[in-house]
Design a protein around this nucleic acid. Structure first.
Lengths: 208, 208, 208, 208
DNA sequence: AATGAATGAGTTTTCATTCAT
DNA sequence: GATGAATGAAAACTCATTCAT
């Protein structure tokens, strides 16, 4: 969570004006990520968050209007972080397929480091449906753009469309669930990504 | 929910002995499915469920031990129903790829009819993690079995493994989310299934 | 508070269905009257009310939706009780002036018995302004009607109007404050009423 | 609120020493009058007052010891202001009855201009009962003095006593409530005062 | 079996007041 | 004097669960 406070704070017009305030806000966001990740939105209590952050209960409300508000801030934050992780893995030009592989690999690595991301984003389906939907729609769009570019470059078949993007995203998400969250490292991110990339490239049918 | 009471009740040793009892149990399950589907586990209240079912609050505990219990029963029920829907679509022998297509198509149809499954199963991640995990693990196993059979039959490449099953399941789930839950019918289940089947068959790379 | 539960309960669709329930509702109303009377709305707490009533905190919400709700119920109840006290003093036909005297006397007696009435109705100005206003408007109307009748009967001057009713009500309310609430009985209700009645009858100017 | 800071500040030994300080105190008092008038004591918050006054939250405590303290200061201030308004209307010698009329008229005018007095003084009943009582007792005394003078001057009947003063005060207060606070100007202060004066002079009985 | 009243632990939220800068 | 962050006690309210009838 290296950035975001700026933007988040702006949305709340509770922007801290002092340095001390900025430090407290940061402590609260980190504590909330941990709490929500470990216990889920409903089990997490404000007082657990403030205890973890080492501030008084009331201080929470200096920075956020409600439990929902900090959750929403966090979802935006994580959503941004996931996308950034992918973006950062894609700096240099690569063949279209390699881009997908690198993106998945980066995502798996990120999810392994931040297992709480699944809980938090999944729980948004219930706590803040709009940002849940936006999260996936944005990612699907980005994938679709890449498909179009690969198509234009003659590396992909023609006729690719939104549904392909959702299919690819689904693959990635579930591979992440299985191998980043529920696994103890039996398969490395690169191995999983390579395997998925083969599937994506040429499917599973036996070539005749 | 055409069946299930028997099994559910068994899990609870609160099997109703009279006809009247069986009717009440059924009313409660249906009401719970609707409530949990509309409002999610935490927003749903026992009293809302009993009100919907038209029975007294206290009667709930004649049939279930707790709020968790009825939720768990429901997850099992829906999980079972999803699998059954797939199974029913797969009675006659078909080429391996066609089986996958038919299964996806059946799932999409089922999800369209029962939009509440997504909420209920997704929420199990938080309320009853074990059955959430079991749900997906069971489905992945079934897919893997089919992959192995297709492999044996020479229709699929060799080297298919668990990860492929998870990738396929992820595709299916996200296509369901996008086209069964969040769509107003812009794409028919069959269209989506065909498209996904092509991807599965031969991937997206331009063949040389 | 001899009546009212019926009406009050109706307004809340939380009508108790059993006898036990009706008894609890009554206990809560009485406890609330005492609490609000002694401590005022804001100092009174739900838990103090339930403690006084000898029921559990949660039971409060079986009968009322909020602290406001029970207060409102109580204001209606007391408002009704004040009017009833006046009405009961006015059963037999009397000369117009005597009616006013009897009404004031009855009011003073009632206020002496139920000192909490002032606090509760006065506080309605802040907690439930509408019923505060309605309370006084209704009483003023009743007085005005009586003035009109006395006028018609040739006992009162002509030209009496709403403002006279408010003036009379103000006299009565402040005499009640001074001699029913803030006095230790130095002047009997009848004495005060007689004195006010003289003022009302012929004013304070020296007749020429 | 043209004066008072001096006196108020004295009661608090927090008298501002600089000009800037005096300006801040004034801003706080005005803001508090507005807040308490609009929202009542309990709904009003210190932070709303300081926000309105355009000063920092903490600055409040440079001038007042507590929320109660500023409220009490305000009640004293308004109480004083009401009396002053009456006093100012009574500079030249007049017949006794005319004095009462002029006093009422002045009061109604004042209340029309400062509708917040009613809320603030009425709320004192709950927040600071002592000053509430003092407020009315002082006014009643003043009225009683005037009655005695009119009596001595042979303009009033003999036998007038405290109760008459309270009756007159009640009339005035309720006429103010009805025609200064709850009216949109349908009746001018002078009209109301004249009408009340007639009632006071000779009552409502038909003369024989 | 059914009913609906009773229970009370647990949570969010508010806000007057204090304090460090 | 001014600022605004920090504090924590206090209170309303919810609701799963129990229980008497």
């Amino acid at each position: 969570m290296e950035r975001g406070e700026q933007a988040i704070a702006t949305q709340m017009d509770k922007t801290p004006r002092t340095d001390r305030g900025r430090r407290t806000l940061r402590k609260l966001l980190d504590a909330a990520a941990a709490e929500f990740g470990e216990n889920g939105f409903h089990e997490a209590s404000i007082s657990a968050i403030t205890a973890r952050a080492g501030v008084a209960l009331g201080s929470f409300y200096t920075y956020f209007d409600s439990k929902d508000a900090i959750f929403r801030a966090l979802v935006g934050d994580m959503s941004e972080a996931v996308k950034r992780a992918a973006r950062e893995a894609l700096t240099e030009p690569m063949p279209a397929l390699d881009i997908e592989r690198a993106a998945l690999s980066a995502f798996l690595r990120f999810a392994t480091e931040h297992k709480e991301i699944y809980r938090i984003i999944d729980e948004a389906e219930f706590v803040d449906p709009q940002s849940y939907r936006e999260h996936y729609e944005t990612i699907a769009e980005r994938i679709l753009e890449r498909l179009r570019e690969g198509e234009k470059a003659g590396e992909y078949k023609s006729g690719l469309e939104e549904a392909h993007a959702w299919a690819i995203m689904g693959m990635n998400v579930f591979l992440g669930l299985r191998y980043a969250i529920w696994s103890d490292g039996e398969k490395s991110p690169d191995d999983v990504a390579r395997l998925a990339n083969d599937l994506l490239a040429s499917g599973i049918s036996k070539e005749k």
